[in-house]
Design a protein around this nucleic acid. Structure first.
Length: 742
DNA sequence: CTCTTCACTCTCCACAGTCA
DNA sequence: TGACTGTGGAGAGTGAAGAG
């Protein structure tokens, strides 16, 4: 194809002016043929030049076509037949997997086309010719240019093909609308206009930005070679979208569909990323944010992380004015990306299509003669360009046979421009409306969010009150049973002890039986290992350090797991007895609740099974666990318990065997409490060891109190003093059998 | 060289299904 | 009913590689 005197109209959704998009409908003056050019086109010239580009730039060109995985919108499929005809004479072969670029055609345009086809029957065959045919035909026409009749035919053909070009331009615009999310909810995988949207700041960057276009393709192939990087704008858009949906993410258990939404919204902004990628990217960004915030990254303050303010706004809770400002910047960026710039504003030519005015499109059209050279310029070489230019000039001169043709053509183009202009205007109006809708929606969301925050605050206050009551009750209980007066350490603010406030029942029960819970201040401080109160507080500190504020976290904090292990192992004998286990787990659940952990019996059971399962699995696979392993901190505890024979169910025996430790005769684990637990603690991390030290003591204190018969039938006391409880506890005394020594 | 990002693995949780 | 297994999602940790 000779790209001469192009009156190019982009058929790609990108309508970028500064540099013509790869798909240009080139209408040459001399041969009156219409063709599409593409940077990725396998024409020698293009190919050569393309090879001068860095590989990622070349990759980008390939993406100007439809996305490989794209399925045309249903509404478009109906028109594919017509387009097939168009694409058949396009010089640029579409993507191999998409021989038919799914462009919609307006019914009116179809009608016009049909009429023209009826009138221009002779030209019809020419229209359906292949590119080579076209080239040959062009030569033939050049040879016989003086023949008036053929010239007439050619003119008519031009008219027809210009019409087609116009239709295609319209289709492109429709497609663009779709790509920006206006095409209906069921347009899933938007054809990637180069996966990522060009940076609004500079179109020339568009040439180099988007290394990520092959994302979907590469994704399944494993690690890419670095071409999947997220441009800043894209990351900002992701953060913005994710932030907007934060409430949903917090409320929803399953995140998958939400990430699908994020992906779709990103696609509306022109970025094509899978849900998985969005999730992964956000997780990574979040991780890095946390890292920088904790000062683990190189920079001391962590504040210089470029997305810090956005993430701080999301996670920090409080937005400083600067953060608001930057958020506004994000919003502005997103607005720009959605093409919602102020209508009528002449947007920088470097910017993308959505804000581009028709005149600019026409600029692109009229300037396309030179712009293609510009487009090829990156590695094109001067010689090539000069040669081309001279060829173009020659052809132009040869084509000057009739100014009437030019006039005719110009009028055609004028028509085209007018239509484009009106369409563009409509499009801008549509975008404007959409932006207004969005703003209204955002405002509503903001209000909703404020309400939610207020409600949360209220709940927190309630929770704190409850916790305080419970603490007081516990303290009073412990004071009563130990006969000592406890001095609780003062904590400036009460951290969220557990994900959910303790069950009202337990608190009420505690209150009922502990009518006088005044915290005394005169008594000597009790050693830190003697109260469950401190145990819980300690847990909180530990947990808090690990996971800052996550009231919805489903994860079991380390101390909670250890508590469960303690409670469950205490009841081992009862679990060995025949009978339903439900009540036992219920008791464990109650015991957990007493210590501030709100887990129902099902969760307790499940967790117990899981940790044992994983413990056995690890043991069986003979994996070496580092002593200071950060994960599975309960391993040491479990191992010790198995070694001591405290845990002895059939499966546990397997585990004990796997643990390669001789099973000892089972004695109530209270008989070996402190020594073994200290042993366990020795193997555990420092934090755990403290925890382990505190745990049995606290539990024992409660148990002792319960068994002392001091009339303390709180939930905790009830649990621990249960006559069937095989885990009777007495301080310092060995146990015989599993009978409680009440 | 440091910072940042990507992508992978590991661990944990929760649910469903099967079997005794 | 309880024990066990399989599976998928979520989140954390981490090494490698890109970017500056």
């Amino acid at each position: 194809m000779q790209n001469t005197g192009q009156y190019g109209v982009s058929d790609s959704p990108q309508f970028v002016v500064g540099r013509p998009p790869p798909h240009i409908f080139a209408i040459s003056h001399d041969n009156m043929s219409i063709s599409t050019s593409s940077a990725g086109h396998p024409l020698p010239g293009h190919h050569q030049q393309q090879h001068h580009l860095p590989h990622h730039l070349q990759a980008q060109h390939h993406h100007y076509g439809p996305h490989p995985g794209h399925q045309p919108h249903p509404s478009l499929q109906a028109h594919q037949q017509i387009h097939q005809t168009q694409s058949s004479h396009a010089t640029h072969a579409p993507h191999p997997q998409h021989p038919q670029f799914p462009l919609a055609q307006h019914p009116q345009a179809q009608q016009q086309q049909q009429q023209q086809q009826q009138q221009q029957q002779p030209a019809q065959a020419h229209v359906s010719s292949t590119h080579q045919d076209v080239a040959q035909h062009q030569q033939h026409q050049q040879a016989q240019q003086q023949k008036q009749q053929q010239a007439q035919q050619q003119a008519q053909q031009i008219a027809q093909q210009a019409q087609q070009a116009q239709q295609q331009a319209q289709q492109a615009q429709q497609q663009m609308v779709q790509q920006l999310g206006l095409g209906g909810p069921d347009s899933p995988e938007v054809p990637s206009p180069g996966v990522s949207r060009p940076s609004p700041t500079n179109y020339s960057q568009q040439q180099i930005v988007n290394p990520a276009q092959d994302d979907d393709g590469l994704e399944e192939e494993g690690r890419s070679t670095g071409g999947n990087r997220w441009p800043r704008q894209e990351t900002l858009a992701l953060i913005k979208i994710r932030s907007d949906m934060d409430a949903n993410f917090r409320d929803s258990g399953l995140k998958g569909p939400l990430w699908e939404d994020v992906s779709k919204k990103l696609a509306e902004l022109g970025y094509s990323r899978s849900a998985k990628k969005c999730k992964e990217k956000f997780e990574n960004v979040h991780k890095y944010y946390k890292k920088t915030k904790d000062g683990r990254a190189g920079r001391q303050d962590g504040k210089s992380y470029r997305f810090f303010s956005q993430l701080e706004a999301l996670y920090g809770g409080q937005q400083t004015s600067a953060q608001l400002e930057s958020n506004a910047a994000v919003v502005a960026a997103a607005n720009l990306l959605t093409g919602s710039a102020i209508p009528g504003k002449v947007v920088n030519e470097d910017y993308n299509v959505s804000t581009q005015r028709p005149s600019e499109v026409s600029t692109g059209v009229t300037l396309s003669e030179s712009s293609e050279d510009d487009y090829d310029e990156p590695g094109g070489g001067e010689a090539d360009n000069q040669e081309k230019s001279s060829k173009k000039r020659k052809r132009m001169e040869g084509g000057k046979s009739g100014t009437s043709k030019l006039d005719f053509f110009e009028s055609l183009m004028k028509n085209l421009m007018d239509k484009q202009e009106s369409m563009q205007r409509k499009f801008l109006e549509f975008m404007e409306r959409r932006e207004q809708d969005r703003q209204v929606w955002e405002e509503a969301w903001r209000r909703q969010e404020m309400t939610r925050l207020a409600r949360e605050h209220e709940l927190r206050a309630q929770e704190q009150a409850l916790a305080a009551t419970r603490d007081a009750a516990l303290v009073a209980f412990l004071q009563k049973v130990t006969g000592q007066t406890l001095q609780l350490p003062q904590f400036p603010t009460r951290p969220p002890v557990v994900a959910v406030p303790p069950s009202i029942d337990s608190v009420v029960a505690a209150q009922k039986h502990q009518p006088t819970p005044p915290p005394t201040t005169s008594a000597p401080a009790v050693p830190p290992t003697t109260t469950s109160q401190q145990l819980v507080v300690s847990n909180v500190d530990d947990h808090d350090k690990d996971s800052p504020i996550d009231p919805n976290s489903k994860r079991w904090p380390k101390p909670e797991v250890l508590t469960l292990i303690k409670l469950r192992s205490d009841m081992e004998t009862r679990f060995q007895e025949a009978g339903p286990k439900g009540p036992l787990w219920e008791e464990i659940s109650q015991g957990m609740a007493c210590l501030g952990y709100n887990r129902n019996q099902k969760r307790c059971k499940e967790k117990w099974e899981n940790i044992n399962k994983y413990f056995r699995k690890t043991k069986e696979s003979n994996k070496k666990r580092p002593e200071n392993a950060k994960t599975c901190p309960y391993f040491h505890q479990l191992e010790v318990l198995y070694r001591q024979g405290v845990l002895g169910t059939p499966s546990n025996k397997q585990a004990a065997k796997a643990a390669d430790s001789p099973a000892r005769d089972f004695v109530d684990h209270q008989a070996v409490p402190l020594a073994h637990r200290t042993e366990a603690a020795a193997g555990a991390k420092a934090g755990d060891s403290e925890m382990l030290k505190m745990l049995p003591a606290a539990a024992e204190a409660v148990q002792n109190a319960a068994s002392s018969g001091n009339g303390t039938p709180s939930a905790a006391a009830h649990f621990f003093s249960s006559p069937e409880n095989g885990s009777s506890a007495e301080r310092g005394g060995p146990k015989q059998g599993s009978e409680p020594s009440l």
